[in-house]
Design a protein around this nucleic acid. Sequence first.
DNA 1: GTCTATACGCCGATAGAC
DNA 2: GTCTATCGGCGTATAGAC
Lengths: 205, 205
Amino acid sequence: MSPLKQNRSNDRNKDVRDQILRAAKELFAKKGYEGTTVRQICHEANVSLALVSYHFGGKENVFFEVFQPIRQLFENMKYDLSDSLGALKSFCRQFVIFRNEESELVSILQQELVMNSPRLEMLTDVFLPSWEQLRLILQECQEKNLIDFPSVDVAVNFIMGTLMFSHNNAFLNRTQSEMSPEQVADFAVNFIINGLQATSEQGKR
Amino acid sequence: MSPLKQNRSNDRNKDVRDQILRAAKELFAKKGYEGTTVRQICHEANVSLALVSYHFGGKENVFFEVFQPIRQLFENMKYDLSDSLGALKSFCRQFVIFRNEESELVSILQQELVMNSPRLEMLTDVFLPSWEQLRLILQECQEKNLIDFPSVDVAVNFIMGTLMFSHNNAFLNRTQSEMSPEQVADFAVNFIINGLQATSEQGKR
DNA sequence: GTCTATACGCCGATAGAC
DNA sequence: GTCTATCGGCGTATAGAC
Protein backbone atom coordinates (compact mmCIF):
# COMPACT_ATOMS: atom_id res chain seq x y z
CA MET A 1 0.00 0.00 0.00
CA SER A 2 1.47 3.32 -1.04
CA PRO A 3 2.20 5.64 1.87
CA LEU A 4 1.07 8.49 -0.35
CA LYS A 5 -2.51 7.30 -0.21
CA GLN A 6 -4.55 9.40 2.12
CA ASN A 7 -6.32 7.43 4.79
CA ARG A 8 -9.60 9.33 4.74
CA SER A 9 -11.62 6.48 6.11
CA ASN A 10 -11.07 3.63 8.50
CA ASP A 11 -11.04 1.07 5.76
CA ARG A 12 -9.75 3.23 2.95
CA ASN A 13 -7.18 0.59 2.21
CA LYS A 14 -9.97 -1.59 0.83
CA ASP A 15 -10.33 -1.50 -2.90
CA VAL A 16 -12.26 1.46 -4.24
CA ARG A 17 -14.56 -0.76 -6.26
CA ASP A 18 -15.54 -2.66 -3.14
CA GLN A 19 -16.14 0.52 -1.24
CA ILE A 20 -18.45 1.80 -3.95
CA LEU A 21 -20.33 -1.50 -4.14
CA ARG A 22 -20.74 -1.64 -0.38
CA ALA A 23 -22.08 1.92 -0.22
CA ALA A 24 -24.33 1.38 -3.23
CA LYS A 25 -25.85 -1.78 -1.79
CA GLU A 26 -26.60 -0.05 1.47
CA LEU A 27 -28.14 3.01 -0.18
CA PHE A 28 -30.12 1.08 -2.80
CA ALA A 29 -31.63 -0.99 -0.02
CA LYS A 30 -32.50 2.04 2.06
CA LYS A 31 -33.60 4.56 -0.54
CA GLY A 32 -34.21 2.55 -3.67
CA TYR A 33 -32.32 2.73 -6.95
CA GLU A 34 -33.90 5.92 -8.19
CA GLY A 35 -33.85 7.48 -4.75
CA THR A 36 -30.10 7.00 -4.55
CA THR A 37 -27.76 9.40 -6.34
CA VAL A 38 -24.25 8.71 -7.54
CA ARG A 39 -23.17 11.62 -5.39
CA GLN A 40 -24.52 9.89 -2.28
CA ILE A 41 -22.83 6.64 -3.18
CA CYS A 42 -19.45 8.30 -3.68
CA HIS A 43 -19.82 10.35 -0.56
CA GLU A 44 -20.63 7.26 1.49
CA ALA A 45 -17.74 5.42 -0.12
CA ASN A 46 -15.36 8.33 0.51
CA VAL A 47 -14.36 8.60 -3.12
CA SER A 48 -14.88 11.29 -5.69
CA LEU A 49 -17.88 11.54 -7.96
CA ALA A 50 -16.06 10.48 -11.08
CA LEU A 51 -15.05 7.03 -9.90
CA VAL A 52 -18.40 5.37 -10.37
CA SER A 53 -18.24 6.05 -14.07
CA TYR A 54 -14.54 5.27 -14.24
CA HIS A 55 -14.74 1.86 -12.56
CA PHE A 56 -18.20 0.71 -13.56
CA GLY A 57 -19.25 2.85 -16.48
CA GLY A 58 -22.39 4.20 -14.87
CA LYS A 59 -24.89 3.82 -12.08
CA GLU A 60 -26.79 0.96 -13.73
CA ASN A 61 -23.67 -1.17 -13.94
CA VAL A 62 -23.06 -0.65 -10.24
CA PHE A 63 -26.54 -1.99 -9.64
CA PHE A 64 -25.79 -5.06 -11.71
CA GLU A 65 -22.48 -5.66 -9.96
CA VAL A 66 -24.08 -5.44 -6.53
CA PHE A 67 -25.84 -8.73 -7.26
CA GLN A 68 -22.79 -10.46 -8.66
CA PRO A 69 -21.74 -12.22 -5.44
CA ILE A 70 -25.00 -14.13 -5.15
CA ARG A 71 -25.37 -15.16 -8.77
CA GLN A 72 -23.24 -18.27 -8.29
CA LEU A 73 -25.00 -19.08 -5.06
CA PHE A 74 -28.34 -19.19 -6.80
CA GLU A 75 -27.18 -21.34 -9.64
CA ASN A 76 -26.39 -24.20 -7.28
CA MET A 77 -29.78 -24.15 -5.61
CA LYS A 78 -31.27 -27.51 -6.43
CA TYR A 79 -33.82 -29.43 -4.40
CA ASP A 80 -34.61 -33.11 -4.27
CA LEU A 81 -37.99 -33.31 -5.97
CA SER A 82 -38.53 -36.92 -4.94
CA ASP A 83 -39.00 -35.69 -1.39
CA SER A 84 -41.14 -32.75 -2.41
CA LEU A 85 -42.49 -31.92 1.02
CA GLY A 86 -38.97 -31.92 2.39
CA ALA A 87 -37.89 -29.82 -0.57
CA LEU A 88 -40.59 -27.28 0.21
CA LYS A 89 -39.53 -27.04 3.83
CA SER A 90 -35.90 -26.77 2.83
CA PHE A 91 -36.68 -24.05 0.30
CA CYS A 92 -38.55 -21.96 2.82
CA ARG A 93 -35.95 -22.34 5.52
CA GLN A 94 -33.10 -21.49 3.21
CA PHE A 95 -34.92 -18.44 1.95
CA VAL A 96 -35.45 -17.09 5.46
CA ILE A 97 -31.79 -17.66 6.24
CA PHE A 98 -30.78 -15.99 2.99
CA ARG A 99 -33.10 -13.10 3.67
CA ASN A 100 -31.47 -12.66 7.03
CA GLU A 101 -27.93 -12.82 5.73
CA GLU A 102 -28.50 -10.73 2.64
CA SER A 103 -31.28 -8.51 3.87
CA GLU A 104 -30.09 -5.58 1.78
CA LEU A 105 -30.15 -7.51 -1.48
CA VAL A 106 -33.58 -8.90 -0.67
CA SER A 107 -34.82 -5.42 0.10
CA ILE A 108 -33.52 -4.15 -3.23
CA LEU A 109 -35.01 -7.12 -5.07
CA GLN A 110 -38.34 -6.53 -3.39
CA GLN A 111 -38.43 -2.89 -4.43
CA GLU A 112 -37.57 -3.69 -8.02
CA LEU A 113 -40.21 -6.41 -8.11
CA VAL A 114 -42.95 -4.27 -6.63
CA MET A 115 -42.42 -1.44 -9.06
CA ASN A 116 -41.71 -3.67 -12.02
CA SER A 117 -38.55 -1.78 -12.75
CA PRO A 118 -36.78 -2.00 -16.11
CA ARG A 119 -33.78 -3.36 -14.19
CA LEU A 120 -35.62 -6.60 -13.45
CA GLU A 121 -34.32 -7.93 -16.72
CA MET A 122 -30.81 -7.79 -15.28
CA LEU A 123 -32.03 -9.75 -12.28
CA THR A 124 -33.96 -12.58 -13.85
CA ASP A 125 -31.05 -14.94 -13.42
CA VAL A 126 -31.02 -14.08 -9.73
CA PHE A 127 -34.58 -14.79 -8.73
CA LEU A 128 -36.45 -16.47 -11.56
CA PRO A 129 -34.77 -19.83 -10.87
CA SER A 130 -36.00 -19.66 -7.27
CA TRP A 131 -39.52 -18.96 -8.41
CA GLU A 132 -39.36 -21.85 -10.86
CA GLN A 133 -37.95 -24.21 -8.26
CA LEU A 134 -40.76 -23.34 -5.90
CA ARG A 135 -43.32 -23.82 -8.63
CA LEU A 136 -41.90 -27.23 -9.49
CA ILE A 137 -41.84 -28.29 -5.87
CA LEU A 138 -45.45 -27.25 -5.40
CA GLN A 139 -46.54 -29.05 -8.54
CA GLU A 140 -44.86 -32.20 -7.28
CA CYS A 141 -46.57 -31.87 -3.91
CA GLN A 142 -49.91 -31.50 -5.62
CA GLU A 143 -49.45 -34.37 -8.05
CA LYS A 144 -48.42 -36.74 -5.29
CA ASN A 145 -51.43 -35.64 -3.25
CA LEU A 146 -49.13 -34.65 -0.42
CA ILE A 147 -50.87 -31.31 -0.09
CA ASP A 148 -54.11 -30.11 -1.56
CA PHE A 149 -54.43 -26.47 -2.52
CA PRO A 150 -56.39 -24.75 -5.27
CA SER A 151 -53.69 -23.04 -7.34
CA VAL A 152 -49.94 -23.38 -7.73
CA ASP A 153 -49.61 -19.82 -9.03
CA VAL A 154 -51.46 -18.24 -6.14
CA ALA A 155 -49.61 -20.47 -3.70
CA VAL A 156 -46.29 -19.28 -5.08
CA ASN A 157 -47.43 -15.72 -4.48
CA PHE A 158 -48.54 -16.39 -0.92
CA ILE A 159 -45.30 -18.14 -0.10
CA MET A 160 -43.01 -15.56 -1.63
CA GLY A 161 -45.05 -12.85 0.04
CA THR A 162 -44.63 -14.54 3.38
CA LEU A 163 -40.93 -15.09 2.88
CA MET A 164 -39.98 -11.76 1.33
CA PHE A 165 -42.23 -9.21 2.91
CA SER A 166 -41.41 -9.99 6.50
CA HIS A 167 -39.32 -7.67 8.60
CA ASN A 168 -38.56 -4.94 6.17
CA ASN A 169 -40.15 -1.91 7.64
CA ALA A 170 -38.58 0.28 10.27
CA PHE A 171 -41.63 1.64 11.96
CA LEU A 172 -44.06 -1.20 11.54
CA ASN A 173 -41.74 -3.49 13.43
CA ARG A 174 -41.13 -1.06 16.23
CA THR A 175 -40.42 -3.70 18.81
CA GLN A 176 -37.37 -5.71 17.94
CA SER A 177 -38.39 -9.25 17.17
CA GLU A 178 -37.90 -11.55 20.12
CA MET A 179 -37.28 -14.51 17.80
CA SER A 180 -33.97 -15.72 16.46
CA PRO A 181 -33.60 -16.14 12.70
CA GLU A 182 -33.81 -19.90 13.12
CA GLN A 183 -37.02 -19.60 15.08
CA VAL A 184 -38.46 -17.31 12.44
CA ALA A 185 -37.46 -19.83 9.81
CA ASP A 186 -39.22 -22.59 11.73
CA PHE A 187 -42.30 -20.43 12.10
CA ALA A 188 -42.24 -19.63 8.38
CA VAL A 189 -41.94 -23.28 7.39
CA ASN A 190 -44.75 -24.16 9.74
CA PHE A 191 -46.92 -21.28 8.50
CA ILE A 192 -46.49 -22.23 4.88
CA ILE A 193 -46.81 -25.99 5.15
CA ASN A 194 -49.89 -25.80 7.33
CA GLY A 195 -51.29 -22.94 5.32
CA LEU A 196 -51.32 -24.99 2.16
CA GLN A 197 -53.40 -27.74 3.74
CA ALA A 198 -56.97 -27.54 2.59
CA THR A 199 -59.69 -27.61 5.21
CA SER A 200 -63.34 -28.55 5.02
CA GLU A 201 -64.09 -24.89 5.63
CA GLN A 202 -62.61 -23.97 2.29
CA GLY A 203 -65.10 -22.15 0.15
CA LYS A 204 -67.32 -21.45 3.11
CA ARG A 205 -68.23 -17.90 4.04
CA MET B 1 -70.27 22.97 -19.83
CA SER B 2 -68.85 25.79 -21.88
CA PRO B 3 -68.84 25.11 -25.62
CA LEU B 4 -65.53 26.94 -25.73
CA LYS B 5 -63.85 24.08 -23.90
CA GLN B 6 -61.86 21.97 -26.28
CA ASN B 7 -62.72 18.30 -26.17
CA ARG B 8 -59.24 16.94 -26.48
CA SER B 9 -60.00 13.69 -24.79
CA ASN B 10 -62.95 11.35 -24.57
CA ASP B 11 -63.68 12.33 -21.02
CA ARG B 12 -62.34 15.85 -21.06
CA ASN B 13 -65.57 17.02 -19.56
CA LYS B 14 -64.54 15.40 -16.31
CA ASP B 15 -63.03 17.77 -13.85
CA VAL B 16 -59.37 18.48 -14.39
CA ARG B 17 -58.51 17.66 -10.82
CA ASP B 18 -60.03 14.22 -11.21
CA GLN B 19 -58.18 13.64 -14.45
CA ILE B 20 -54.88 14.49 -12.80
CA LEU B 21 -55.62 12.28 -9.80
CA ARG B 22 -56.61 9.38 -12.03
CA ALA B 23 -53.47 9.67 -14.14
CA ALA B 24 -51.25 10.13 -11.09
CA LYS B 25 -52.66 7.06 -9.34
CA GLU B 26 -52.08 4.95 -12.42
CA LEU B 27 -48.53 6.20 -12.94
CA PHE B 28 -47.53 6.07 -9.28
CA ALA B 29 -48.69 2.45 -9.17
CA LYS B 30 -46.80 1.54 -12.31
CA LYS B 31 -43.59 3.55 -11.99
CA GLY B 32 -43.46 4.62 -8.36
CA TYR B 33 -43.61 8.12 -6.97
CA GLU B 34 -40.06 9.10 -7.84
CA GLY B 35 -40.22 7.31 -11.16
CA THR B 36 -43.20 9.38 -12.20
CA THR B 37 -42.74 12.94 -13.43
CA VAL B 38 -45.27 15.74 -13.30
CA ARG B 39 -44.88 15.99 -17.05
CA GLN B 40 -46.00 12.37 -17.46
CA ILE B 41 -48.98 12.90 -15.20
CA CYS B 42 -50.14 15.96 -17.11
CA HIS B 43 -49.57 14.30 -20.44
CA GLU B 44 -51.62 11.28 -19.39
CA ALA B 45 -54.32 13.58 -18.01
CA ASN B 46 -54.33 15.67 -21.20
CA VAL B 47 -53.70 18.89 -19.36
CA SER B 48 -50.80 21.29 -19.37
CA LEU B 49 -47.81 21.04 -17.08
CA ALA B 50 -48.80 24.00 -14.92
CA LEU B 51 -52.06 22.58 -13.66
CA VAL B 52 -50.61 20.21 -11.11
CA SER B 53 -49.12 23.12 -9.24
CA TYR B 54 -52.18 25.29 -9.81
CA HIS B 55 -54.72 22.80 -8.49
CA PHE B 56 -52.71 20.92 -5.91
CA GLY B 57 -49.69 23.03 -5.12
CA GLY B 58 -47.14 20.41 -6.07
CA LYS B 59 -46.49 16.75 -6.80
CA GLU B 60 -46.45 15.69 -3.15
CA ASN B 61 -49.95 17.05 -2.57
CA VAL B 62 -51.21 15.07 -5.54
CA PHE B 63 -49.80 11.96 -3.88
CA PHE B 64 -51.64 12.78 -0.67
CA GLU B 65 -54.90 13.45 -2.47
CA VAL B 66 -54.73 10.15 -4.34
CA PHE B 67 -55.35 8.36 -1.04
CA GLN B 68 -58.14 10.66 0.06
CA PRO B 69 -61.03 8.49 -1.17
CA ILE B 70 -60.04 5.54 1.01
CA ARG B 71 -59.29 7.46 4.19
CA GLN B 72 -62.91 7.38 5.29
CA LEU B 73 -63.22 3.75 4.33
CA PHE B 74 -60.38 2.78 6.63
CA GLU B 75 -61.69 4.74 9.59
CA ASN B 76 -64.82 2.64 9.71
CA MET B 77 -62.95 -0.64 9.72
CA LYS B 78 -63.80 -2.21 13.05
CA TYR B 79 -63.86 -5.88 13.88
CA ASP B 80 -65.70 -7.75 16.58
CA LEU B 81 -62.89 -8.80 18.91
CA SER B 82 -65.16 -11.09 20.92
CA ASP B 83 -65.20 -13.43 17.91
CA SER B 84 -61.51 -13.05 17.26
CA LEU B 85 -61.16 -15.99 14.91
CA GLY B 86 -64.05 -14.69 12.86
CA ALA B 87 -62.50 -11.23 12.98
CA LEU B 88 -59.25 -12.61 11.62
CA LYS B 89 -61.02 -14.35 8.76
CA SER B 90 -63.05 -11.26 8.03
CA PHE B 91 -59.96 -9.06 8.07
CA CYS B 92 -58.13 -11.27 5.61
CA ARG B 93 -61.07 -11.60 3.28
CA GLN B 94 -61.76 -7.89 3.24
CA PHE B 95 -58.14 -7.13 2.57
CA VAL B 96 -58.04 -9.42 -0.45
CA ILE B 97 -61.21 -7.83 -1.77
CA PHE B 98 -59.81 -4.35 -1.14
CA ARG B 99 -56.55 -5.30 -2.80
CA ASN B 100 -58.50 -6.42 -5.81
CA GLU B 101 -60.66 -3.33 -6.03
CA GLU B 102 -57.93 -0.83 -5.26
CA SER B 103 -54.95 -2.64 -6.66
CA GLU B 104 -53.26 0.58 -7.70
CA LEU B 105 -53.41 2.09 -4.25
CA VAL B 106 -52.14 -1.14 -2.71
CA SER B 107 -49.30 -1.21 -5.19
CA ILE B 108 -48.34 2.35 -4.30
CA LEU B 109 -48.59 1.62 -0.60
CA GLN B 110 -46.44 -1.45 -1.02
CA GLN B 111 -43.71 0.49 -2.80
CA GLU B 112 -43.66 3.22 -0.20
CA LEU B 113 -43.52 0.66 2.59
CA VAL B 114 -40.72 -1.35 1.07
CA MET B 115 -38.49 1.64 0.52
CA ASN B 116 -39.46 3.35 3.74
CA SER B 117 -40.24 6.54 1.89
CA PRO B 118 -40.55 9.89 3.65
CA ARG B 119 -44.13 10.00 2.36
CA LEU B 120 -45.14 7.18 4.70
CA GLU B 121 -45.87 9.80 7.31
CA MET B 122 -48.69 11.07 5.13
CA LEU B 123 -50.04 7.54 4.93
CA THR B 124 -49.97 6.39 8.53
CA ASP B 125 -53.66 7.11 8.91
CA VAL B 126 -54.32 4.91 5.89
CA PHE B 127 -52.61 1.71 6.89
CA LEU B 128 -51.44 1.87 10.49
CA PRO B 129 -54.98 1.30 11.81
CA SER B 130 -55.18 -1.89 9.75
CA TRP B 131 -51.90 -3.11 11.14
CA GLU B 132 -53.04 -2.34 14.66
CA GLN B 133 -56.38 -4.05 14.13
CA LEU B 134 -54.63 -7.16 12.93
CA ARG B 135 -52.26 -7.07 15.87
CA LEU B 136 -55.14 -6.75 18.32
CA ILE B 137 -57.03 -9.58 16.67
CA LEU B 138 -54.00 -11.83 16.83
CA GLN B 139 -53.37 -10.99 20.46
CA GLU B 140 -56.97 -11.88 21.25
CA CYS B 141 -56.65 -15.18 19.41
CA GLN B 142 -53.53 -16.00 21.35
CA GLU B 143 -54.89 -15.03 24.75
CA LYS B 144 -58.02 -17.07 24.25
CA ASN B 145 -55.87 -20.03 23.16
CA LEU B 146 -57.77 -20.20 19.89
CA ILE B 147 -54.54 -20.36 17.94
CA ASP B 148 -51.04 -20.99 19.11
CA PHE B 149 -48.18 -19.26 17.35
CA PRO B 150 -44.82 -18.06 18.57
CA SER B 151 -44.94 -14.31 17.86
CA VAL B 152 -47.64 -11.77 17.13
CA ASP B 153 -45.19 -9.42 15.43
CA VAL B 154 -43.82 -12.04 13.08
CA ALA B 155 -47.32 -13.32 12.41
CA VAL B 156 -48.44 -9.82 11.41
CA ASN B 157 -45.57 -9.73 8.95
CA PHE B 158 -46.38 -13.13 7.47
CA ILE B 159 -50.03 -12.24 7.08
CA MET B 160 -49.50 -8.83 5.56
CA GLY B 161 -46.87 -10.33 3.27
CA THR B 162 -49.32 -12.96 2.12
CA LEU B 163 -52.09 -10.44 1.61
CA MET B 164 -50.13 -7.61 0.04
CA PHE B 165 -47.44 -9.23 -2.01
CA SER B 166 -49.66 -11.48 -4.04
CA HIS B 167 -50.36 -10.78 -7.67
CA ASN B 168 -48.39 -7.67 -8.22
CA ASN B 169 -45.82 -8.64 -10.74
CA ALA B 170 -46.37 -8.65 -14.44
CA PHE B 171 -43.94 -11.30 -15.51
CA LEU B 172 -43.90 -13.57 -12.50
CA ASN B 173 -47.60 -14.17 -12.93
CA ARG B 174 -47.37 -14.86 -16.59
CA THR B 175 -50.40 -17.12 -16.69
CA GLN B 176 -53.52 -15.28 -15.76
CA SER B 177 -54.80 -16.63 -12.49
CA GLU B 178 -57.58 -19.14 -12.97
CA MET B 179 -59.16 -18.17 -9.66
CA SER B 180 -61.80 -15.56 -9.02
CA PRO B 181 -61.08 -12.87 -6.41
CA GLU B 182 -63.48 -14.60 -4.02
CA GLN B 183 -61.69 -17.90 -4.47
CA VAL B 184 -58.35 -16.21 -3.87
CA ALA B 185 -59.82 -14.63 -0.75
CA ASP B 186 -60.96 -18.04 0.47
CA PHE B 187 -57.57 -19.50 -0.24
CA ALA B 188 -55.87 -16.64 1.60
CA VAL B 189 -58.09 -17.03 4.65
CA ASN B 190 -57.46 -20.74 4.65
CA PHE B 191 -53.71 -20.27 4.18
CA ILE B 192 -53.42 -17.83 7.04
CA ILE B 193 -55.70 -19.53 9.55
CA ASN B 194 -54.14 -22.93 9.01
CA GLY B 195 -50.68 -21.44 8.82
CA LEU B 196 -50.91 -19.99 12.27
CA GLN B 197 -51.75 -23.35 13.81
CA ALA B 198 -48.77 -24.79 15.59
CA THR B 199 -47.79 -28.35 14.83
CA SER B 200 -45.78 -30.88 16.75
CA GLU B 201 -43.18 -30.52 14.04
CA GLN B 202 -42.46 -26.97 15.10
CA GLY B 203 -38.85 -26.47 16.03
CA LYS B 204 -37.86 -29.64 14.27
CA ARG B 205 -35.29 -29.61 11.53
C1' DG C 1 -6.27 6.13 -10.57
C1' DT C 2 -8.11 9.90 -8.51
C1' DC C 3 -9.29 14.39 -8.31
C1' DT C 4 -12.06 19.10 -9.51
C1' DA C 5 -14.73 21.51 -12.63
C1' DT C 6 -18.06 21.46 -15.83
C1' DA C 7 -21.38 19.94 -19.56
C1' DC C 8 -25.95 19.06 -20.44
C1' DG C 9 -30.56 17.21 -19.77
C1' DC C 10 -34.52 16.59 -17.06
C1' DC C 11 -36.78 17.71 -12.85
C1' DG C 12 -40.58 20.54 -10.33
C1' DA C 13 -42.35 24.97 -10.09
C1' DT C 14 -43.84 29.49 -11.71
C1' DA C 15 -44.45 33.97 -14.53
C1' DG C 16 -47.25 35.96 -17.51
C1' DA C 17 -50.25 35.92 -21.87
C1' DC C 18 -54.87 34.75 -22.93
C1' DG D 1 -58.52 28.28 -15.46
C1' DT D 2 -55.47 27.00 -18.79
C1' DC D 3 -51.87 27.65 -21.62
C1' DT D 4 -46.58 28.30 -23.21
C1' DA D 5 -42.08 29.61 -22.01
C1' DT D 6 -38.69 29.68 -18.83
C1' DC D 7 -36.17 29.54 -14.27
C1' DG D 8 -33.14 27.43 -10.90
C1' DG D 9 -31.57 23.15 -9.22
C1' DC D 10 -29.95 18.68 -9.25
C1' DG D 11 -29.23 14.38 -11.85
C1' DT D 12 -25.45 11.57 -14.42
C1' DA D 13 -21.55 11.58 -16.99
C1' DT D 14 -17.15 13.32 -18.65
C1' DA D 15 -12.96 16.40 -19.67
C1' DG D 16 -8.72 17.40 -18.23
C1' DA D 17 -5.17 18.44 -14.43
C1' DC D 18 -2.32 15.85 -11.44
